[in-house]
Computed example of a mutant assay.
Amino acid sequence: MTTPLRLVIFDVDGTLVDSQGDILAAMAVAFETVGHPLPAREQVLAMVGLSLEVIFPTLVPDADAATHARMVQRYKDAYVALRAEGGVARSSPLYPGARQALEALHAVPEVLLGVATGKSRRGLDKLIEGHGLQGLFVTQHCADFHPSKPHPSMILGALSDTGVAPRDAIMVGDTSFDMEMAAGAGVAGVGVSWGYHDAARLGAFAHTVVDDFDGLQGALNQVWGQLA
Rank of each mutant, 00 (worst) to 15 (best):
T175S: 08
C142A: 10
I9V: 13
H146D: 12
H68L: 09
A40K: 08
M179D: 00
P150I: 00
T208L: 08
V190C: 11
G157Y: 10
V210P: 00
E103R: 11
M179Y: 01
S120C: 09
P152D: 04
C142L: 05
L82W: 11
A30K: 03
L16W: 03
A65Q: 14
S176Q: 12
K76H: 05
S19G: 12
S19F: 05
G114I: 02
M171N: 03
S153K: 06
A89M: 12
A165R: 08
P93E: 10
L112A: 11
D168S: 10
V115G: 09
L59Q: 05
I155Q: 03
A78K: 01
P150A: 09
L94R: 12
D212K: 10
C142F: 04
V80I: 12
S193V: 01
A169S: 09
E42Y: 08
D11V: 07
R74P: 02
D214M: 08
M171K: 11
T33W: 15
V54F: 04
E180F: 07
Q20H: 15
L38C: 12
P93M: 06
G173H: 05
I170F: 00
M154H: 08
L156T: 05
A143K: 00
G118E: 00
L52K: 02
G186N: 08
I170W: 01
Y79M: 04
G173T: 10
I23V: 14
E42V: 11
L136E: 01
L202C: 12
